[in-house]
């Protein structure tokens, strides 16, 4: 039987040096809500688990003048309770409410959720609307990557060996006045078949700026740029008619992942209706 071990470093420096020592068989564990079931099912077989929960500085949700920085150990529940997130990043708050079940929210972390890169993640679409970056640290230094570049496909990212994701940084000036998050799932607490986050600004009934992202049965969560750019400048009341008139949303069509009875047809119709309805909710301040 192979040797396995849980390591409990106290500082980020220790995390990095352990990572170097342990090599490829090491996995970082934060909340463990995705990783532990995968280990139990034999889908992941790490040799070492580097546990971040003893690193105090990773728990922090920190506000600077221009950003909110969410540490690797901040749980979804903590994000839900953070007045800074509630007030300054409502879209993230809306999405966090829809994450799985209270049990999972209490331990699952936002950074862990991003690194797991499940296309059905509730948080990633919201973060995409915020042009969020993930902050990665290795012994060679630090880099920050836009989420849209960090996540490359289902459960895959550009994280490198020896790198630890320490936080996600959201730009405050990217938050718009109107926001909404909606999700289609087969039952309460389940992963989304289709999710949509919308963040909008309007002036005199005209759309000034729009960000729309979707997740679910896609290769990865994406921004729906082709819709975004076409609704800017439109009067708010024309948005639904516009969406109804779009025969195919190219960006979505290109990344749909059909699965059994969830056919292409079903998914494109669902995404299109979901975007329309989320936009409507955002405009009406829901």
């Amino acid at each position: 039987m192979k040797q396995s071990k849980v390591l409990n470093p106290k500082t980020l420096a220790e995390v990095l040096s352990l990572f170097e020592q342990c090599g490829d068989g090491a996995r970082v564990i934060a909340g463990g809500q995705s990783l532990v079931p995968m280990i139990s099912l034999g889908l992941s077989e790490p040799d070492f688990l580097i546990n971040l929960s003893s690193c105090d500085d990773l728990f922090v949700i920190k506000k600077t003048r221009k950003t909110i920085n969410i540490g690797a150990m901040a749980s979804v529940s903590e994000i839900l309770n953070s007045s800074q997130v509630i007030n300054l990043l409502p879209i993230l708050n809306f999405a966090a409410k829809k994450v799985a079940t209270p049990h999972v929210r209490n331990f699952g972390t936002l950074v862990g959720n991003v690194c797991h890169a499940d296309p059905s993640s509730d948080l990633i679409p919201a973060l995409l609307c915020l042009d969020a970056q993930i902050d990665l640290v290795s012994k060679d230094g630090k880099r920050s990557v836009l989420l849209s570049e960090f996540i490359t496909g289902p459960y895959s990212t550009t994280i490198r060996g020896g790198e630890v994701a320490v936080s996600v940084t959201c730009q405050l000036d990217k938050q718009s006045k109107l926001a909404s998050y909606k999700k289609v799932a087969r039952r309460a607490g389940d992963l989304g078949i289709a999710t949509c986050a919308v963040s909008l600004d309007s002036h005199k009934d005209c759309i000034e700026s729009a960000k729309i992202s979707v997740g679910g049965y896609l290769r990865k969560a994406i921004r729906v740029l082709d819709i975004e750019k076409n609704i800017v400048g439109l009067p708010a009341h024309e948005i639904c008619t516009f969406i109804d008139g779009v025969e195919k949303i190219e960006s979505i069509e290109n990344s749909i992942l059909p699965d059994g009875s969830l056919t292409n047809n079903y998914l494109s119709a669902t995404f299109s209706r979901l975007i329309r309805s989320t936009l409507k909710d955002a405009l009406s301040g829901k």
């Binding site: 289609v184 078949i193 009875s261 969830l262 056919t263 047809n265 079903y266 119709a269 669902t270």
Partner: peptide, 11 residues
Amino acid sequence: ITPYKIMNVLI
């Protein structure tokens, strides 16, 4: 009667 079956009819 899953959502997909219903959606196929609605579509």
